[in-house]
Design a binder for these strands. Structure first.
Lengths: 193, 193
DNA sequence: GACATTCTAGAATATATATTCTAGTATATA
DNA sequence: TATATACTAGAATATATATTCTAGAATGTC
Protein backbone atom coordinates (compact mmCIF):
# COMPACT_ATOMS: atom_id res chain seq x y z
CA UNK A 1 0.00 0.00 0.00
CA UNK A 2 2.87 2.38 0.59
CA UNK A 3 3.36 5.07 3.16
CA UNK A 4 0.30 6.57 4.86
CA UNK A 5 -0.43 10.12 3.76
CA UNK A 6 0.01 12.88 6.30
CA UNK A 7 -2.29 15.12 4.26
CA UNK A 8 -5.45 14.66 2.24
CA UNK A 9 -6.53 16.28 -1.00
CA UNK A 10 -9.23 18.16 0.82
CA UNK A 11 -6.76 19.63 3.25
CA UNK A 12 -4.98 21.30 0.36
CA UNK A 13 -8.25 22.40 -1.23
CA UNK A 14 -9.53 23.86 2.03
CA UNK A 15 -6.24 25.63 2.69
CA UNK A 16 -6.35 27.20 -0.77
CA UNK A 17 -9.97 28.17 -0.17
CA UNK A 18 -9.14 29.84 3.10
CA UNK A 19 -6.25 31.84 1.70
CA UNK A 20 -8.26 32.87 -1.37
CA UNK A 21 -11.15 34.06 0.78
CA UNK A 22 -8.97 36.00 3.18
CA UNK A 23 -6.28 37.45 0.97
CA UNK A 24 -7.47 36.96 -2.60
CA UNK A 25 -6.41 34.55 -5.34
CA UNK A 26 -3.01 36.17 -5.85
CA UNK A 27 -2.05 35.18 -2.32
CA UNK A 28 -2.75 31.53 -3.09
CA UNK A 29 0.81 30.59 -3.93
CA UNK A 30 1.80 26.96 -3.80
CA UNK A 31 4.16 27.79 -0.99
CA UNK A 32 1.41 29.53 0.99
CA UNK A 33 -0.96 26.59 0.63
CA UNK A 34 1.71 24.17 1.77
CA UNK A 35 2.69 26.41 4.68
CA UNK A 36 -0.96 26.71 5.78
CA UNK A 37 -1.11 23.01 6.67
CA UNK A 38 2.56 22.45 7.33
CA UNK A 39 3.19 20.40 4.21
CA UNK A 40 6.12 20.61 1.79
CA UNK A 41 5.46 22.16 -1.60
CA UNK A 42 6.30 18.90 -3.31
CA UNK A 43 3.24 17.32 -1.75
CA UNK A 44 1.00 19.80 -3.53
CA UNK A 45 2.34 18.53 -6.83
CA UNK A 46 2.05 14.99 -5.69
CA UNK A 47 -1.73 15.49 -5.54
CA UNK A 48 -2.46 18.19 -8.09
CA UNK A 49 -1.09 18.60 -11.58
CA UNK A 50 -0.64 22.31 -11.06
CA UNK A 51 -1.70 25.28 -9.01
CA UNK A 52 -4.44 25.91 -11.58
CA UNK A 53 -5.89 22.46 -11.10
CA UNK A 54 -5.95 22.91 -7.34
CA UNK A 55 -7.81 26.19 -7.71
CA UNK A 56 -10.19 24.72 -10.25
CA UNK A 57 -11.10 22.09 -7.68
CA UNK A 58 -11.78 24.85 -5.18
CA UNK A 59 -14.03 26.61 -7.65
CA UNK A 60 -16.03 23.58 -8.65
CA UNK A 61 -16.51 22.40 -5.08
CA UNK A 62 -18.03 25.73 -4.06
CA UNK A 63 -20.15 26.29 -7.16
CA UNK A 64 -21.58 22.78 -6.94
CA UNK A 65 -22.58 23.31 -3.30
CA UNK A 66 -24.19 26.67 -3.97
CA UNK A 67 -26.00 25.58 -7.07
CA UNK A 68 -27.40 22.34 -5.76
CA UNK A 69 -29.61 24.00 -3.18
CA UNK A 70 -30.64 26.67 -5.67
CA UNK A 71 -31.74 24.08 -8.22
CA UNK A 72 -33.73 22.06 -5.73
CA UNK A 73 -35.76 25.14 -4.87
CA UNK A 74 -36.30 25.89 -8.54
CA UNK A 75 -37.39 22.36 -9.34
CA UNK A 76 -39.99 22.60 -6.62
CA UNK A 77 -41.35 25.78 -8.16
CA UNK A 78 -40.11 27.93 -5.29
CA UNK A 79 -38.84 30.83 -7.40
CA UNK A 80 -38.87 33.41 -4.67
CA UNK A 81 -37.02 31.12 -2.30
CA UNK A 82 -34.47 30.50 -5.04
CA UNK A 83 -34.00 34.25 -5.48
CA UNK A 84 -33.50 34.60 -1.74
CA UNK A 85 -31.11 31.69 -1.64
CA UNK A 86 -28.24 33.94 -2.71
CA UNK A 87 -28.29 36.39 0.22
CA UNK A 88 -28.97 33.58 2.67
CA UNK A 89 -26.15 31.44 1.38
CA UNK A 90 -23.79 34.40 1.40
CA UNK A 91 -24.57 35.00 5.07
CA UNK A 92 -23.96 31.37 5.94
CA UNK A 93 -20.87 30.86 3.81
CA UNK A 94 -19.03 34.17 3.66
CA UNK A 95 -15.66 32.69 2.70
CA UNK A 96 -17.02 30.56 -0.12
CA UNK A 97 -19.20 33.41 -1.31
CA UNK A 98 -16.21 35.71 -1.56
CA UNK A 99 -14.40 33.26 -3.75
CA UNK A 100 -17.06 32.54 -6.33
CA UNK A 101 -18.87 35.88 -6.33
CA UNK A 102 -16.05 38.35 -5.88
CA UNK A 103 -13.48 36.80 -8.15
CA UNK A 104 -13.98 35.75 -11.73
CA UNK A 105 -13.26 32.22 -12.73
CA UNK A 106 -10.34 33.37 -14.86
CA UNK A 107 -8.85 35.31 -12.00
CA UNK A 108 -8.78 32.21 -9.86
CA UNK A 109 -7.77 29.76 -12.55
CA UNK A 110 -5.63 31.51 -15.12
CA UNK A 111 -4.78 28.79 -17.61
CA UNK A 112 -6.77 26.09 -19.35
CA UNK A 113 -8.65 23.56 -17.33
CA UNK A 114 -7.84 19.89 -17.82
CA UNK A 115 -10.51 18.03 -19.77
CA UNK A 116 -12.16 16.27 -16.83
CA UNK A 117 -12.53 19.43 -14.76
CA UNK A 118 -13.74 21.30 -17.81
CA UNK A 119 -16.48 18.76 -18.38
CA UNK A 120 -17.52 18.86 -14.73
CA UNK A 121 -17.75 22.65 -14.91
CA UNK A 122 -19.71 22.47 -18.15
CA UNK A 123 -22.07 19.97 -16.63
CA UNK A 124 -22.77 22.31 -13.70
CA UNK A 125 -23.41 25.17 -16.09
CA UNK A 126 -25.76 23.08 -18.19
CA UNK A 127 -27.79 21.93 -15.23
CA UNK A 128 -28.19 25.51 -14.08
CA UNK A 129 -29.32 26.67 -17.49
CA UNK A 130 -31.74 23.80 -17.83
CA UNK A 131 -33.22 24.43 -14.42
CA UNK A 132 -33.82 28.07 -15.22
CA UNK A 133 -35.39 27.37 -18.59
CA UNK A 134 -37.69 24.78 -17.05
CA UNK A 135 -38.73 27.22 -14.35
CA UNK A 136 -39.36 29.98 -16.89
CA UNK A 137 -41.51 27.63 -18.92
CA UNK A 138 -43.54 26.70 -15.86
CA UNK A 139 -43.88 30.32 -14.72
CA UNK A 140 -44.84 31.89 -18.03
CA UNK A 141 -46.31 29.01 -19.99
CA UNK A 142 -43.50 29.38 -22.50
CA UNK A 143 -39.75 29.92 -22.37
CA UNK A 144 -38.80 32.22 -25.21
CA UNK A 145 -35.88 34.59 -25.13
CA UNK A 146 -37.80 37.28 -23.26
CA UNK A 147 -39.11 34.96 -20.57
CA UNK A 148 -35.69 33.46 -19.97
CA UNK A 149 -34.01 36.87 -19.72
CA UNK A 150 -36.66 38.01 -17.31
CA UNK A 151 -36.25 34.94 -15.16
CA UNK A 152 -32.47 35.19 -15.03
CA UNK A 153 -32.78 38.84 -14.09
CA UNK A 154 -35.07 38.11 -11.15
CA UNK A 155 -33.40 34.92 -9.95
CA UNK A 156 -29.75 35.57 -10.61
CA UNK A 157 -28.79 39.10 -11.61
CA UNK A 158 -30.72 41.05 -8.99
CA UNK A 159 -29.74 38.84 -6.05
CA UNK A 160 -26.14 38.99 -7.22
CA UNK A 161 -26.23 42.76 -7.54
CA UNK A 162 -27.85 43.08 -4.13
CA UNK A 163 -25.16 41.06 -2.45
CA UNK A 164 -21.92 41.89 -4.19
CA UNK A 165 -21.41 45.35 -2.70
CA UNK A 166 -21.43 43.88 0.80
CA UNK A 167 -19.11 41.08 -0.14
CA UNK A 168 -16.66 43.67 -1.45
CA UNK A 169 -16.78 45.44 1.89
CA UNK A 170 -16.40 42.21 3.82
CA UNK A 171 -19.81 42.72 5.45
CA UNK A 172 -22.77 40.40 5.74
CA UNK A 173 -25.66 41.48 3.50
CA UNK A 174 -28.22 43.16 5.77
CA UNK A 175 -31.74 41.81 6.17
CA UNK A 176 -33.40 44.60 4.20
CA UNK A 177 -32.08 43.40 0.89
CA UNK A 178 -34.19 40.26 1.15
CA UNK A 179 -37.18 42.54 1.06
CA UNK A 180 -35.86 44.40 -1.97
CA UNK A 181 -35.19 41.12 -3.77
CA UNK A 182 -38.70 39.94 -2.94
CA UNK A 183 -40.33 43.14 -4.20
CA UNK A 184 -38.30 42.94 -7.38
CA UNK A 185 -39.16 39.30 -7.87
CA UNK A 186 -42.86 40.02 -7.55
CA UNK A 187 -42.72 42.96 -9.94
CA UNK A 188 -40.65 41.20 -12.57
CA UNK A 189 -42.20 37.74 -12.45
CA UNK A 190 -45.71 39.10 -11.90
CA UNK A 191 -46.05 36.51 -9.19
CA UNK A 192 -47.53 36.58 -5.72
CA UNK A 193 -46.25 33.29 -4.21
CA UNK B 1 12.84 73.20 -23.17
CA UNK B 2 14.51 69.94 -24.06
CA UNK B 3 13.63 67.32 -26.55
CA UNK B 4 10.03 67.13 -27.77
CA UNK B 5 8.19 64.10 -26.47
CA UNK B 6 7.34 61.38 -28.96
CA UNK B 7 4.60 60.15 -26.63
CA UNK B 8 2.07 61.71 -24.29
CA UNK B 9 0.84 60.54 -20.89
CA UNK B 10 -2.54 59.82 -22.38
CA UNK B 11 -1.06 57.58 -25.04
CA UNK B 12 0.27 55.34 -22.31
CA UNK B 13 -2.98 55.50 -20.35
CA UNK B 14 -5.04 54.66 -23.40
CA UNK B 15 -2.72 51.85 -24.38
CA UNK B 16 -3.04 50.35 -20.89
CA UNK B 17 -6.79 50.79 -21.09
CA UNK B 18 -7.01 49.01 -24.41
CA UNK B 19 -4.94 46.06 -23.25
CA UNK B 20 -6.84 45.79 -19.98
CA UNK B 21 -10.17 45.78 -21.78
CA UNK B 22 -9.13 43.23 -24.37
CA UNK B 23 -6.94 40.85 -22.43
CA UNK B 24 -7.47 41.67 -18.76
CA UNK B 25 -5.32 43.44 -16.18
CA UNK B 26 -2.73 40.67 -16.01
CA UNK B 27 -1.85 41.32 -19.64
CA UNK B 28 -1.08 44.95 -18.89
CA UNK B 29 2.65 44.48 -18.43
CA UNK B 30 4.87 47.49 -18.73
CA UNK B 31 6.48 45.91 -21.78
CA UNK B 32 3.07 45.34 -23.41
CA UNK B 33 1.99 48.94 -22.86
CA UNK B 34 5.24 50.23 -24.34
CA UNK B 35 5.01 47.85 -27.28
CA UNK B 36 1.41 48.91 -27.98
CA UNK B 37 2.53 52.41 -28.92
CA UNK B 38 6.08 51.61 -29.98
CA UNK B 39 7.75 53.23 -27.00
CA UNK B 40 10.62 51.90 -24.89
CA UNK B 41 9.81 50.63 -21.42
CA UNK B 42 11.94 53.33 -19.88
CA UNK B 43 9.52 55.97 -21.13
CA UNK B 44 6.75 54.46 -19.08
CA UNK B 45 8.79 55.10 -15.96
CA UNK B 46 9.70 58.54 -17.16
CA UNK B 47 6.02 59.45 -16.89
CA UNK B 48 4.63 57.16 -14.22
CA UNK B 49 6.13 56.22 -10.91
CA UNK B 50 5.13 52.60 -11.36
CA UNK B 51 2.83 50.27 -13.23
CA UNK B 52 0.35 50.65 -10.38
CA UNK B 53 0.22 54.40 -10.77
CA UNK B 54 -0.39 54.08 -14.50
CA UNK B 55 -3.28 51.72 -13.86
CA UNK B 56 -4.66 53.91 -11.11
CA UNK B 57 -4.81 56.75 -13.64
CA UNK B 58 -6.70 54.47 -15.99
CA UNK B 59 -9.16 53.63 -13.26
CA UNK B 60 -9.80 57.16 -12.14
CA UNK B 61 -10.17 58.49 -15.65
CA UNK B 62 -12.92 55.98 -16.43
CA UNK B 63 -14.75 56.21 -13.12
CA UNK B 64 -14.81 59.99 -13.27
CA UNK B 65 -16.30 59.95 -16.76
CA UNK B 66 -18.97 57.41 -15.85
CA UNK B 67 -19.92 59.04 -12.60
CA UNK B 68 -20.16 62.60 -13.83
CA UNK B 69 -23.08 61.91 -16.13
CA UNK B 70 -24.76 59.78 -13.48
CA UNK B 71 -24.55 62.52 -10.88
CA UNK B 72 -25.92 65.20 -13.18
CA UNK B 73 -29.02 63.08 -13.75
CA UNK B 74 -29.39 62.52 -10.02
CA UNK B 75 -29.02 66.19 -9.20
CA UNK B 76 -31.81 66.96 -11.63
CA UNK B 77 -34.07 64.49 -9.88
CA UNK B 78 -34.02 62.08 -12.81
CA UNK B 79 -33.67 58.89 -10.78
CA UNK B 80 -34.97 56.55 -13.43
CA UNK B 81 -32.67 58.04 -16.04
CA UNK B 82 -29.79 57.63 -13.61
CA UNK B 83 -30.67 53.97 -13.12
CA UNK B 84 -30.75 53.53 -16.90
CA UNK B 85 -27.48 55.34 -17.32
CA UNK B 86 -25.54 52.19 -16.51
CA UNK B 87 -26.81 49.98 -19.37
CA UNK B 88 -26.65 52.91 -21.78
CA UNK B 89 -23.11 53.82 -20.84
CA UNK B 90 -22.03 50.20 -21.07
CA UNK B 91 -23.37 50.02 -24.61
CA UNK B 92 -21.55 53.18 -25.63
CA UNK B 93 -18.26 52.48 -23.85
CA UNK B 94 -17.79 48.72 -23.83
CA UNK B 95 -14.03 48.82 -23.26
CA UNK B 96 -14.19 51.25 -20.36
CA UNK B 97 -17.14 49.38 -18.89
CA UNK B 98 -15.22 46.13 -18.92
CA UNK B 99 -12.39 47.66 -16.97
CA UNK B 100 -14.30 49.27 -14.13
CA UNK B 101 -17.21 46.84 -13.88
CA UNK B 102 -15.56 43.50 -14.58
CA UNK B 103 -12.37 43.94 -12.61
CA UNK B 104 -12.08 45.03 -9.02
CA UNK B 105 -9.99 48.02 -8.18
CA UNK B 106 -7.49 45.84 -6.35
CA UNK B 107 -7.14 43.54 -9.31
CA UNK B 108 -6.15 46.44 -11.52
CA UNK B 109 -4.04 48.29 -8.98
CA UNK B 110 -2.43 45.84 -6.62
CA UNK B 111 -0.38 48.01 -4.30
CA UNK B 112 -1.04 51.20 -2.43
CA UNK B 113 -2.06 54.30 -4.30
CA UNK B 114 0.09 57.40 -3.97
CA UNK B 115 -1.48 60.06 -1.79
CA UNK B 116 -2.65 62.36 -4.58
CA UNK B 117 -4.38 59.60 -6.52
CA UNK B 118 -5.87 58.29 -3.32
CA UNK B 119 -7.39 61.63 -2.53
CA UNK B 120 -8.78 61.99 -6.05
CA UNK B 121 -10.38 58.56 -5.75
CA UNK B 122 -11.77 59.39 -2.33
CA UNK B 123 -13.19 62.61 -3.65
CA UNK B 124 -15.00 60.75 -6.42
CA UNK B 125 -16.42 58.29 -3.93
CA UNK B 126 -17.59 61.06 -1.63
CA UNK B 127 -19.35 62.93 -4.39
CA UNK B 128 -21.16 59.77 -5.42
CA UNK B 129 -22.27 59.05 -1.87
CA UNK B 130 -23.41 62.61 -1.31
CA UNK B 131 -25.39 62.62 -4.56
CA UNK B 132 -27.18 59.44 -3.62
CA UNK B 133 -28.02 60.61 -0.11
CA UNK B 134 -29.35 63.89 -1.45
CA UNK B 135 -31.51 62.05 -3.96
CA UNK B 136 -32.83 59.67 -1.31
CA UNK B 137 -33.73 62.61 0.90
CA UNK B 138 -35.62 64.26 -1.95
CA UNK B 139 -37.37 61.06 -2.97
CA UNK B 140 -38.47 59.87 0.46
CA UNK B 141 -38.56 63.06 2.48
CA UNK B 142 -35.82 61.64 4.68
CA UNK B 143 -32.55 59.76 4.18
CA UNK B 144 -32.19 57.22 6.95
CA UNK B 145 -30.40 53.95 6.59
CA UNK B 146 -33.36 52.17 5.02
CA UNK B 147 -34.00 54.87 2.43
CA UNK B 148 -30.37 55.01 1.43
CA UNK B 149 -30.08 51.23 1.09
CA UNK B 150 -33.24 51.20 -0.99
CA UNK B 151 -31.95 53.94 -3.25
CA UNK B 152 -28.56 52.32 -3.79
CA UNK B 153 -30.30 49.06 -4.60
CA UNK B 154 -32.47 50.65 -7.28
CA UNK B 155 -29.88 53.01 -8.72
CA UNK B 156 -26.66 51.06 -8.46
CA UNK B 157 -26.96 47.41 -7.50
CA UNK B 158 -29.75 46.36 -9.84
CA UNK B 159 -28.35 48.11 -12.93
CA UNK B 160 -24.96 46.62 -12.16
CA UNK B 161 -26.39 43.14 -11.75
CA UNK B 162 -28.38 43.52 -14.94
CA UNK B 163 -25.35 44.44 -16.95
CA UNK B 164 -22.47 42.44 -15.57
CA UNK B 165 -23.41 39.07 -17.04
CA UNK B 166 -23.27 40.50 -20.54
CA UNK B 167 -19.99 42.23 -19.90
CA UNK B 168 -18.55 38.90 -18.84
CA UNK B 169 -19.68 37.38 -22.10
CA UNK B 170 -18.36 40.31 -24.11
CA UNK B 171 -21.88 41.11 -25.37
CA UNK B 172 -23.77 44.36 -25.37
CA UNK B 173 -26.61 44.36 -22.80
CA UNK B 174 -29.84 43.78 -24.76
CA UNK B 175 -32.62 46.36 -24.79
CA UNK B 176 -34.97 44.32 -22.59
CA UNK B 177 -32.94 44.88 -19.49
CA UNK B 178 -33.76 48.58 -19.57
CA UNK B 179 -37.37 47.55 -19.12
CA UNK B 180 -36.49 45.29 -16.20
CA UNK B 181 -34.48 48.03 -14.56
CA UNK B 182 -37.39 50.44 -15.02
CA UNK B 183 -39.91 48.03 -13.50
CA UNK B 184 -37.62 47.42 -10.59
CA UNK B 185 -37.04 51.11 -10.08
CA UNK B 186 -40.76 51.79 -9.98
CA UNK B 187 -41.44 48.95 -7.57
CA UNK B 188 -38.60 49.78 -5.21
CA UNK B 189 -38.79 53.58 -5.24
CA UNK B 190 -42.60 53.61 -5.41
CA UNK B 191 -42.25 56.20 -8.14
CA UNK B 192 -44.02 56.74 -11.43
CA UNK B 193 -41.82 59.39 -13.12
C1' DG C 1 12.94 -8.82 6.34
C1' DA C 2 13.54 -7.31 1.39
C1' DC C 3 10.94 -4.75 -1.91
C1' DA C 4 7.63 -2.06 -4.48
C1' DT C 5 4.88 1.66 -3.58
C1' DT C 6 3.22 6.00 -1.94
C1' DC C 7 4.22 9.71 0.08
C1' DT C 8 7.12 13.60 2.47
C1' DA C 9 11.07 16.95 2.15
C1' DG C 10 12.78 20.87 0.46
C1' DA C 11 16.58 22.41 -2.49
C1' DA C 12 17.39 23.65 -7.32
C1' DT C 13 15.65 25.49 -11.63
C1' DA C 14 13.06 28.09 -14.91
C1' DT C 15 10.50 31.90 -16.12
C1' DA C 16 8.15 36.07 -16.09
C1' DT C 17 8.02 40.81 -15.26
C1' DA C 18 8.65 45.19 -12.61
C1' DT C 19 12.15 48.32 -12.01
C1' DT C 20 16.67 50.52 -12.42
C1' DC C 21 20.53 52.21 -14.89
C1' DT C 22 23.60 54.07 -18.23
C1' DA C 23 23.81 56.11 -22.80
C1' DG C 24 22.37 58.57 -26.28
C1' DT C 25 19.32 62.12 -28.87
C1' DA C 26 16.55 66.05 -30.08
C1' DT C 27 14.97 70.69 -28.93
C1' DA C 28 14.62 75.60 -27.03
C1' DT C 29 17.08 79.22 -25.46
C1' DA C 30 20.83 82.20 -24.86
C1' DT D 1 26.12 77.32 -32.08
C1' DA D 2 26.85 75.73 -27.25
C1' DT D 3 24.27 74.03 -23.50
C1' DA D 4 20.79 72.55 -20.28
C1' DT D 5 16.85 69.93 -20.45
C1' DA D 6 13.45 66.44 -21.31
C1' DC D 7 13.07 62.74 -23.29
C1' DT D 8 14.07 58.05 -25.84
C1' DA D 9 16.46 53.48 -25.80
C1' DG D 10 16.75 49.14 -24.21
C1' DA D 11 20.04 46.26 -21.69
C1' DA D 12 20.86 44.74 -16.99
C1' DT D 13 19.04 43.62 -12.45
C1' DA D 14 16.04 42.10 -8.85
C1' DT D 15 12.43 39.45 -7.30
C1' DA D 16 8.74 36.42 -6.97
C1' DT D 17 6.81 32.08 -7.74
C1' DA D 18 5.50 27.81 -10.33
C1' DT D 19 7.52 23.64 -11.28
C1' DT D 20 10.94 19.94 -11.27
C1' DC D 21 14.12 16.95 -9.19
C1' DT D 22 16.61 14.03 -6.08
C1' DA D 23 16.64 11.94 -1.68
C1' DG D 24 14.62 9.82 2.00
C1' DA D 25 10.91 7.77 5.00
C1' DA D 26 7.00 4.87 6.11
C1' DT D 27 3.86 1.14 4.91
C1' DG D 28 1.79 -3.39 3.15
C1' DT D 29 2.99 -7.74 0.81
C1' DC D 30 5.63 -11.68 -0.42
Amino acid sequence: MGRLARFTNDQFIDAAMKIAAEEGPAAVTVAAVAREIGAPVGSVYHRFLSRDVLLAEVWIKIVAAFQEAFLILLENGKGLEAALHTPRWVRQHPAEARIILLYRREELVAGDWPADLKSRALDLKRRLDDGIVAFAAAAFGRAGREEIERTVFALVDVPYGAVIRYIRQGRKPPREIDGFIRQTYTAIMRAEE
